[in-house]
């Protein structure tokens, strides 16, 4: 399949990446090469095969509904790139 720069642009928007032109051009070529190689899977008949997301037959791993004290706020916020005593801060997002 031909991978165009428009396709890379679309995927970049979804992934919140904005590649400089030079990097984008190189990435487009590399993705095309990698995806072309992936096409080897087309040679394998998988009709009727159930997609397997979990390899080990674990099921119903559940937790009881009991409250555990929440974390210390100062500790949870300590890594924030913009410090604030109560919350994480982002540029204006809502009114």
């Amino acid at each position: 399949m031909k991978i165009t720069e428009e396709m890379v642009d679309y995927v970049s928007i979804l992934a919140r990446l904005k590649l400089p032109q030079e990097e984008k051009t190189r990435m487009t070529g590399e993705l095309e090469q990698i995806l072309a190689y992936m096409d080897v899977l087309d040679g394998l008949d998988t009709s009727g095969v159930e997609p397997m997301s979990h390899v080990f037959p674990l099921k119903n791993v559940l937790r009881s509904d009991e409250v555990v004290p929440s974390g210390d706020r100062a500790e949870l916020l300590a890594n924030a790139p913009v410090p604030d005593e109560a919350a994480f801060l982002v540029p204006k997002t809502v009114e």
């Binding site: 559940l62 937790r63 509904d65 929440s70 974390g71 949870l76």
Partner: peptide, 20 residues
């Protein structure tokens, strides 16, 4: 942010476990 822990704050390496 006082009813929070590393899991519900999406901190790296944390994992969800379903409430029965």
């Amino acid at each position: 942010n006082t009813h929070c822990c590393p899991v519900c704050m999406g901190m790296p390496g944390t994992l969800p476990v379903v409430n029965e």
